[in-house]
Nucleic acid binder design. Sequence first.
DNA 1: GTCTATAATTCGATAGAC
DNA 2: GTCTATCGAATTATAGAC
Lengths: 184, 184
Amino acid sequence: MRRSSEDTKASILGAARERFAADGYDRTTIRAIAADAAIDPSMVMRYFGNKEKLFAAAADFDLHLPDLSGVPEDRIGATLAAHFVERWEADEALMVLLRTAVTNEDVAGRMREIFASQLGPLAVKLSGDPATAARRAGLVATQMLGLALCRYVLRLPPVVEMTHQDVVGWLGPTLQRYLVGRDG
Amino acid sequence: MRRSSEDTKASILGAARERFAADGYDRTTIRAIAADAAIDPSMVMRYFGNKEKLFAAAADFDLHLPDLSGVPEDRIGATLAAHFVERWEADEALMVLLRTAVTNEDVAGRMREIFASQLGPLAVKLSGDPATAARRAGLVATQMLGLALCRYVLRLPPVVEMTHQDVVGWLGPTLQRYLVGRDG
DNA sequence: GTCTATAATTCGATAGAC
DNA sequence: GTCTATCGAATTATAGAC
């Protein structure tokens, strides 16, 4: 069959995202991606150059943090918790990134950048204290990435079984304290 | 040089733990482990059969959860937080396991077993409520594994810079609420 | 107990025909 | 735009000499 360049590229990217998310970077082969996309392996090379560039294209994403300016001060933690769960379940690129960052130092570096540049400013804005903002952002990351790890990657049954509402109810107060609380 | 069987086995295991922890399962090669142990690759096969069995031997471990019966009720979260950080930094096998569980379904299964069998009973004992114990244990896992992920694997700077005391001060109350709190 | 040699795979990447 | 064919490298694993 004959497809357009754009169709081919898109189907390769889709297959790549699934494979990278399911198997991690090392275990994923260009051959497998090509087979999923029903195309020859050499086409993948033609469009993306090499495996690393294909990964970069598949893992490109944005946290899309919500605008919290209209949210009541005491609902910030809950709002953020709800947003993270939805965002995570909507975009496979996040899992691709987490799975890969664990065994790839370059990707871990990208993850550091993402959280520093997107979560850091939010923490400054919320806590009003630039001195502790970085730490607050880091704490939020530990809880949110920990949830993602246990729920979507390790699939610990009690964590998988929680509804969105359960997650917001339990993690909301935690994030609230990390972002705007006074102790520590 | 001529070494005893035990010496050889021990040095292979040590090298394997370091490699698996540093590079993950897929990236770690038997050849590299053998080189680290200053031995021929075929010796590794001789002693451990194959790569998978070598990994199983290197990742064998125990959470060694502390006895909390003598700890005041309101200090349980802090005690557990302190214990986890110390345990994590003392035993490389934990990082080996986490790094590998992320891209290996069999190992993820072992991780599920470990947390269910070791953290579950603790939650029952503490909360006194078998109905919610599994969920409480799961929540503790999200926060503790999230800390480990950000601090030891992704190495997010603000999380790495926290002292043991900082960790206990911030995460203690979180674990406390997950284990013995009433909301959710 | 240790090593050499090598079999058997698998993979990323390239060249080139159609 | 798509595919065949293949190279070169790396890896697990085995057989067997010393």
